[in-house]
Design a binder for these strands. Structure first.
Length: 494
RNA sequence: GACCCGCUAGCUCAGUGGGAGAGCAACGGACUUUUAAUCCGUAGGUCCUGGGUUCAAGUCCCAGGCGGGUCACCA
């Protein structure tokens, strides 16, 4: 934003110019370190304070601190693996080089150092330099060394600065990557094939949400950024690919809060010749295995309370869960009683919530969902809530659907997938009616998807798991912004 | 979208209607095992923006911006 931060940037630019005047490039092309800070620290772990070695090392990193003491100086370099101290002595590097280090180098610069190993009297392993090279001159100053960078807005908007100053950020993101790797390993091991399906879709579906829109110029067509990849993965099941999964970046044009980012990651999986009970076992075992691989334990902490991922998870029907929380048996209640209970709880009922099933869902969300702390599977949802799920065997008021809740958040959603094309057509037509009544999040009608089902889809179980939320839970991060490198922010208008 | 809180030096933060401050970073000087190095000195401000009240506004009021939180929305 500021071209010159109170003269600090201009001063650093001048230093770069002075280097160029001496024939030294402040942005040289290559420097090849022989080891990392971490490797050195491990290799010399046994060295005692005051000891020195002839062994040489070449390291590189960002100078994070510096202590100038006349004719010698200590500094810390930070690299990918951590930090290591360097020692620069005038009669070792030479008068000119030492003077450059003092006057032309700044905290924040990226340096290359060649030197020998010793451990200081105070016990810190140190590289004594005989050569210090500027690898990249930093024109902007780093935040203060002790308090670092804490302003959350700056941390999100300038994540690179956050990463330089706050090591925990990278630890969280590394855990996230380990989760993803572990899930891929789990799914691959069960014979699933990882696939990719379109992000740009002419008809969006697979979820109830408002989409982002865009336009293809040459086709002159309106396109939607996917809110889900469900209908494409089911087309693959129709095509005879019996086990598929995809890590899908989905986009939903809704509010932003601690557990919602407009662009987020969902892992969806579909398995032929399976149903929602198969998926219950899958989500428990997959999540548990991923969490254990990522953080080393099945027992984690979430917002001050212990969380135990060990399968099997608690299971109850939605009706049971409502009865437990409110004492009401929704199976014995009509719409009027549900409405009365919602009124009493101060819940405003949206216009499109106009049936027993939708009212029951409303009550579940208001009274139960946020209290499901330990991993819990809630199954059998009212028919109207899920146009893509099969009706429940033996009770057609419900569908074979479950959601998994952890820490009061929805982690996953699964069905015995609807494969009767005529039933599917009827359900999507009912959604169209809902849409006309003002529910702008109801499903679009996807003619080609119906056509695919008309060729025959085997009985199938499917599931979607929120990867950002799993990462939040595994790393005890209170906000989804802490597990996404670049969370959505309003554009600054100066 | 509603309500609450925050926004002061590069960073972290004090600031009681009347002189805009500290620490770190920077700049100059001393110092060859320091590590929040130490010591002496210097410079650095759109107090988020715009109005208003007042003799006087960083401080009080109104509107707006950005962020955080709570709620609403949220397959």
């Amino acid at each position: 934003m500021n071209d010159d931060i109170r003269g600090l940037t201009a001063m650093r630019r001048e230093k770069a110019a002075k280097m160029r005047a001496k024939g030294v490039d402040p942005y040289p092309h290559l420097f090849e370190p022989t080891c990392s800070s971490k490797e050195l620290l491990e290799q010399w772990a046994e060295m005692k304070p005051g000891e020195a070695s002839e062994a040489e090392a070449r390291i590189a990193g960002r100078m994070m601190s510096r202590r100038l003491m006349g004719k010698s100086a200590f500094a810390h370099l930070q690299d990918d693996a951590g930090q290591i101290q360097i020692y620069v002595r005038q009669n070792m590097v030479g008068d000119d080089a030492y003077d450059d280090f003092k006057t032309l180098f700044d905290i924040g610069d990226i340096l290359g150092v060649e030197g020998t190993i010793f451990r200081s009297r105070m016990g810190e392993l140190t590289v004594e330099a005989y050569n210090v090279t500027m690898l990249s001159k930093a024109l902007r100053p780093l935040p203060e060394k002790f308090h670092g960078l804490t302003d959350v807005e700056t941390r999100y908007r300038q994540r690179y600065l956050d990463l330089i100053m706050n090591r925990e950020v990278r630890d969280v993101m590394e855990t996230r990557t380990r989760l993803v790797r572990a899930i891929q390993g789990y799914m691959d091991g069960r014979g699933f094939l990882e696939v990719e399906t379109p992000i740009l879709q002419p008809v969006y579906g697979g979820a109830a949400a408002r989409p982002f829109t865009t336009r293809h110029n040459v086709l002159d067509e309106l396109l939607y950024l996917r809110i889900s990849n469900e209908l494409y993965l089911k087309r693959l099941i129709v095509g005879g690919m019996e086990r598929v999964y995809e890590f899908s970046k989905d986009f939903r044009n809704e509010g932003i809060d601690r557990s919602h980012n407009p662009e987020f990651t969902m892992m969806e999986a579909y398995q032929a010749y399976a149903d929602y009970e198969t998926m219950m076992e899958l989500v428990e075992n997959m999540s548990a295995q991923a969490v254990e691989a990522a953080v080393g334990s099945l027992k984690t902490e979430w917002q001050g309370k212990p969380l135990d991922w060990t399968p099997p998870w608690r299971r109850m029907s939605m009706a049971e869960s409502i009865q437990e929380a409110t004492g009401m048996d929704i199976l014995q209640c009509g719409e009027a009683e549900l409405k009365a209970e919602l009124d009493q709880r101060g819940v405003e009922i949206p216009a499109h919530v106009n049936s027993w099933g939708l009212l029951a869902m409303e009550l579940f969300e208001a009274a139960v969902e946020r209290h499901l702390f330990q991993p819990t599977i809630v199954y059998d949802y009212p028919l109207e809530t899920s146009p893509l799920a099969k009706k429940k065997r033996g009770d057609e008021r419900f569908v074979e659907r479950f959601e998994a809740f952890v820490g009061g958040m929805e982690l996953g959603n699964a069905y015995s997938e609807l494969n009767d094309p005529d039933d599917q057509r009827a359900r999507l037509e009912a959604q169209a009616v809902q849409r006309e009544r003002g529910d702008d999040e109801s499903h679009m009608f996807d003619e080609d998807f119906i056509r695919a089902l008309e060729y025959g889809m085997p009985p199938t179980g499917g599931i979607g798991v929120g990867i950002d939320r799993l990462a939040m839970l595994a790393t005890n991060s209170a906000s989804i912004r802490d597990v996404i490198f670049f969370p959505q922010m309003r554009t600054h208008t100066p």
